[in-house]
Simulated scan of single mutants.
Amino acid sequence: MAITLSDEARRILALFEDVTGATGRDCLVDDDRVVVLVAAGDMGEAIGPGGQHVRTFEEKLKRDVKLVEDASLVEDFVANALAPAAVYHVTISENGDTVAYAEVAEEDTGVAIGVDGRNIDAARRLASRHFDVDDIQLT
């Protein structure tokens, strides 16, 4: 599945790779935040020692950054996209629309949703772009 990136998203991914040394696979750009999809296995490099790489990247962008680790299975991808919420299980239903039902720890529901729904919105957008998931519902 081909992902189309804006010029701004391409520039941000190039900066991300320069600053962190990790591979960025996708990027969602919002007014006050950037969500970077990090190649599977590169999350430690993206964060850096004591979080230094991601902090430097945020300082250069002058925006908050959320990192999401890529995964080959849709269930793992959805769980990663909802992190740092504790996701116990993800079930995919394909009755018409493809919906991912994520079982999230009750105390982490707010974290999964995020302020003004921005975490679950980013998870939905990424899951749609990479796995044709139409929706993510928390259970």
Rank of each mutant, 00 (worst) to 15 (best):
A2W: 09
A2F: 12
A2H: 08
I3E: 04
I3T: 05
T4G: 03
T4C: 05
L5W: 08
L5S: 09
S6D: 10
D7F: 10
D7P: 07
D7A: 15
R11P: 01
A14Y: 08
L15Q: 04
E17R: 07
V19P: 00
V19M: 04
T20E: 01
G21Q: 09
A22C: 06
T23Q: 10
T23N: 09
T23G: 04
R25S: 10
L28W: 08
V29M: 07
V29I: 14
D31H: 12
D31V: 15
D32P: 00
D32K: 14
R33I: 12
V34D: 01
V35K: 02
V36E: 10
L37F: 06
L37Q: 02
V38G: 02
V38K: 00
A40F: 09
D42Y: 08
G44Q: 13
G44W: 11
G44R: 15
G44S: 13
E45M: 15
A46M: 07
G48V: 08
P49Q: 15
P49M: 14
G50W: 06
G51T: 14
G51C: 11
Q52C: 08
H53D: 12
H53L: 11
V54C: 05
V54D: 03
V54W: 02
V54F: 09
R55H: 13
E58D: 08
E59S: 15
K62D: 15
R63P: 01
R63D: 13
D64L: 09
K66G: 05
V68M: 02
E69I: 13
E69Y: 03
E69W: 05
D70Y: 04
A71I: 08
S72V: 13
L73G: 12
V74T: 07
V74I: 14
D76A: 14
F77I: 04
F77T: 01
F77Q: 00
V78W: 01
V78F: 03
A79F: 02
A79C: 11
A79E: 03
N80Q: 11
A81T: 06
L82P: 02
L82Q: 00
P84V: 13
P84C: 14
A85T: 09
A85D: 02
A86L: 13
V87L: 04
Y88A: 11
H89L: 12
H89T: 15
V90C: 05
V90K: 01
T91S: 14
I92R: 02
I92A: 05
I92H: 04
N95C: 09
N95S: 12
G96Q: 07
G96E: 10
G96K: 04
D97W: 09
Y101F: 14
A102V: 01
A102K: 01
V104N: 01
V104F: 00
A105W: 05
E106N: 09
E106T: 06
E106C: 04
T109M: 14
T109V: 15
A112F: 00
V115T: 14
V115P: 02
D116T: 08
G117F: 11
N119F: 11
I120P: 00
I120V: 15
D121E: 14
A122W: 02
A122F: 06
A122D: 08
A127G: 04
S128N: 15
S128A: 15
R129F: 07
H130V: 08
D132N: 11
D132S: 10
D134K: 03
D135K: 07
I136H: 00
I136A: 05
Q137F: 06
Q137R: 15
Q137A: 13
L138D: 05
L138Y: 11
